[in-house]
């Protein structure tokens, strides 16, 4: 920014920098009291705004989320005015994007597990679930592994495991899931683009 503010002031001649209200006998008591009251009552809230993209249809409208810095919760979502596609406007579902955040009580918050024959979900931890899943994957893969097909050609297929989804996750996550699946030798791989 080569045009700094200081540069202009000299050129324009105005010298407003020295102007200060108190030097003109203005009673700023009420404002100071109010400011202090806000500060003491912790009513001055720190927040941030973040740009994101809508997670409904594939038009890709831009959004701006306002987030309370203390609680970390999103408290407002609006269209991104700079975004050339939606230019700040949103459709009915996009405007309801807020209902997908943790404000919606139906959102999943816990690792859930259903034992074989079980009648309901139980809550588990990640540290319990991840190793258990890895073991199940290895056993299913090894048991059903097809190194060579009927014609004797080398195929290295893990035919007993399948993967479905998703076109509702980020591209980097899609790539990771595909890479994991192909490294495991899976061929039954598909997702919503098919339906």
């Amino acid at each position: 920014m080569e045009m700094t503010r200081r540069g202009f002031l000299i050129v324009t001649g105005a010298v407003g920098s020295g102007v200060a209200l108190s030097t003109f006998g203005l009673d700023l008591g009420p404002v100071r009291a109010y400011a202090e009251e806000l500060d003491k009552a912790k009513r001055l809230k720190a927040a941030k705004q973040v740009t994101t993209v809508c997670c409904y249809c594939s038009v890709g409208c831009g959004l701006i989320c306002s987030v309370d810095k203390v609680t970390g919760k999103i408290f407002n979502i609006e269209g991104d005015p700079e975004h050339p596609i939606n230019e700040g406007s949103l459709c009915a579902k996009g405007a309801g994007f807020f209902d997908l955040t943790e404000a919606n009580k139906y959102r999943l918050r816990k690792v859930l597990y259903r034992a074989p024959g079980g009648m309901d979900w139980e809550e588990k931890s990640w540290d319990w679930a991840i190793p258990r899943i890895a073991r199940l994957v290895k056993d299913a893969r090894d048991k059903g592994f097809v190194a060579r097909n009927a014609k004797g050609e080398l195929v290295n297929r893990a035919e007993t495991i399948a993967h479905l989804g998703s076109s509702n996750v980020d591209s980097e996550e899609c790539w990771l899931m595909v890479t994991k699946a192909r490294a495991l030798g899976m061929v039954y791989i598909d997702h919503q683009a098919r339906v």
Binding site: R43, K45, A47, V50, N76
Partner: peptide, 14 residues
């Protein structure tokens, strides 16, 4: 700073 645009607001006077 699209990752984080910080600001302050007065509670009750958004």
């Amino acid at each position: 700073s699209q990752r984080e645009m910080p600001y302050f607001f007065v509670e009750g006077r958004e």
